[in-house]
């Protein structure tokens, strides 16, 4: 029930009502532009949508850079994760909840679990060899194409951090953004009172 997907489809019982979207409605994945998108804030802006979609890969790449280079420059798992999640937040703001659902790689809960497993696993692996928890193991290899490459276990750990931060933000956006939006929608369907169009900061 704490799953993302339950946040997006309009709850059961409402689906077959005329005028409402179908229950298993999902934003189209392949298209650049989706027609049935309703942004979270304000009127719909095609420019913003396109820009967001174009920006997403760039932002994600930058976030990975932050993650990897953290040991030497400002950055790291947190900053990387925050930047990556910013991409999705942008997407949600531009395209609304369906757009967000279309864009995320997996359910936030799974992201959280994977991140936790990754970080926890890295932390506990040394225990199996009788070493203290979280001991860092690094290995420098000479790869044919990349030259000298250092693999350190803290990178795995940082990746866990990264995943969890992304998971947190997605989960929160899903809950506090999309779900609330869905409820409003519902309420409006019901002939409810308030609409969401009240300013918008971002």
């Amino acid at each position: 029930m704490a799953d993302l997907e339950s946040a997006y489809p309009v709850p059961a019982g409402r689906a077959d009502r005329p005028g409402g979207p179908p229950e298993d409605w999902e934003a189209p994945r392949e298209r650049w532009l989706s027609t049935a998108v309703r942004p979270a804030f304000g009127p719909r802006s095609v420019l913003l949508e396109v820009a967001t979609r174009l920006l997403t890969p760039a932002i994600l790449t930058f976030s990975v850079f932050l993650l990897v280079s953290g040991h030497d420059r400002p950055g790291g798992g947190f900053a990387g994760g925050l930047v990556a999640s910013m991409a999705y937040v942008l997407r949600y703001i531009a395209g609304g909840r369906h757009e967000l659902a279309a864009g995320i790689p997996m359910q936030p809960n799974r992201l959280l679990a994977l991140g936790l497993l990754l970080a926890g696993g890295t932390a506990s692996a040394p225990l199996l060899f009788g070493r203290p928890v979280l001991e860092v193991v690094s290995y420098t290899a000479v790869l044919p194409l990349f030259g000298k490459v250092k693999f350190a276990s803290y990178l795995l750990f940082e990746s866990g951090v990264f995943l969890i931060v992304v998971g947190l933000v997605l989960s929160v956006v899903a809950a506090l953004g999309a779900r609330m939006e869905a409820e409003e929608y519902e309420a409006r369907e019901r002939g409810g009172a308030w609409g969401p169009e009240e300013g918008g900061a971002a």
Partner: peptide
Amino acid sequence: LLGAALALL
């Protein structure tokens, strides 16, 4: 913690 991650999965 590992158990929690597994249980969440």
